[in-house]
Design a protein around this nucleic acid. Structure first.
Lengths: 228, 228
DNA sequence: CCCTTTTTCGTCTCCACGACGATAAAGCTT
DNA sequence: AAGCTTTATCGTCGTGGAGACGAAAAAGGG
């Protein structure tokens, strides 16, 4: 054991949120080489005594400035091509985070400037390292997970309406869903959402019932994407 | 970059196969401390210039003695709790491999003795390191993937019958499936299997049509587990 | 030649889903 | 205040897939 190849291990984050009917990802602009001036996923080195999940959670709170309330964080995959970082052998554990839209603007407590960018208008080939591929994998994971988990509610505040959940699906999948069938599906799937009892006020149109996240972790049966 | 915490990175494998109507996993008995004498997942250190996938594929061929023909290999997840290895900070990238039953017995080209063990009769708490959890995650991944991918055929030889695929599902899911509905489902799902034109001979009962893997990578609609 | 085994084809029912129509309940306009 | 717009919510209808079976086909074994 005294003789093993030494690696650097980093944690990189694909942090997604829905704002203004567009899916956004949190990116930082690199201030130092390599890839100076390029956009990159937020992340950093894992401490030698730090758990991988803790490192990801730490980076998430550091970059978003949140006390880490709601939201979802899961491991996405590990990327370690020998030449992915020109500085040396760096293996990165990538994580996928889904957050509700933050009223707090991203005030970088870090040196680099962080910002939300709409994923559909990002040139992934311009991202630093292999972050273009990591982002693509994260988007695919998020889109797939909406099908068979209630994770769409991770994009919503603690209390939300069915229409807000539908907006998440329509934004992430970039497709239109029938409001009536969607309503039947969400309220009919056991454990997806729980009624709060109150309704919205002051919005346009008929007031909508408020819900919170239900206990379900899997959707049975799954939410189906159109055009099957 | 000159100053980063040094990690060791390993690749560990959850190699599954179906034999004698039981799901088996490939394990090796450790010959050196720590966990000397315990069963462990096969694996080893990643070379400093080696790609992660290549390392996993290398370990797979080394441990199974195969020239790596059929089968499936995908990344399962990365495990890196600071105390998971008493020798130091070791992060392991775990991989899931699905193989057809090997007529070749596992002749360890390695020092440690390798063997197939039935997963239902393994005391996962007795496995070395955190391999019990990794194995549990691998089994869950395999069971889930059978639902929405045609990966059950990865457990079968190049040419197989519908009944063989059904046996895979019944073994991995540990449940009984109706042969008639299963047959309709498999042959009716586009791209799942392709007819070879020939049939089995010398078996008991009516000869069965032979199939090979189809081009589909996803099952639409998915294969549903009973008791929903 | 009958029996057993296994494959393969049909049938029937139920339920979920897609496509809509209709109604309810608010704000907004004039 | 009356009508209009907007959005939420409830119903209905037809289709198609899945579960539960029945039945025929095609082999081997006694």
């Amino acid at each position: 054991m005294a003789d093993y190849p030494p690696f650097a291990v980093t944690a990189d984050l694909v942090v997604l949120t829905v704002r203004a009917d567009e899916l956004h990802v949190l990116l930082v602009r690199r201030g130092v080489p390599p890839y100076e001036g390029c956009w990159a996923l937020p992340g950093g080195f894992v401490g030698i005594h730090e758990d991988l999940f803790d490192a990801a959670a730490r980076e998430l709170t550091e970059e978003t400035g949140l006390p880490e309330p709601a939201g979802h964080l899961e491991q996405l995959g590990t990327y370690g091509h020998p030449t992915r970082d020109p500085r040396g052998r760096v293996v990165t554990v990538a994580w996928l985070a889904l957050l509700p839209d933050l009223p707090t603007p991203v005030a970088g407590s870090d040196a680099a400037a962080a910002d939300w960018l709409p994923v559909n208008r990002i040139d992934r080939a311009r991202l630093a390292f292999d972050h273009g591929r990591i982002l693509a994998d994260g988007l695919e994971r998020a889109r797939a997970k909406l099908e068979y988990t209630p994770l769409a509610t991770a994009f919503c505040p603690a209390e939300f309406t069915v229409a807000q959940v539908r907006a998440v699906y329509e934004t992430v999948w970039d497709t239109a869903l029938d409001p009536r069938n969607f309503h039947r599906k969400v309220t009919g799937t056991p454990g997806f959402v729980e009624s709060v009892g109150r309704s919205t006020e002051g919005e346009r149109g008929r007031p909508a019932q408020l819900f919170r996240r239900g206990p379900a972790t899997l959707l049975h049966p799954p939410m189906l994407r159109p055009s099957t």
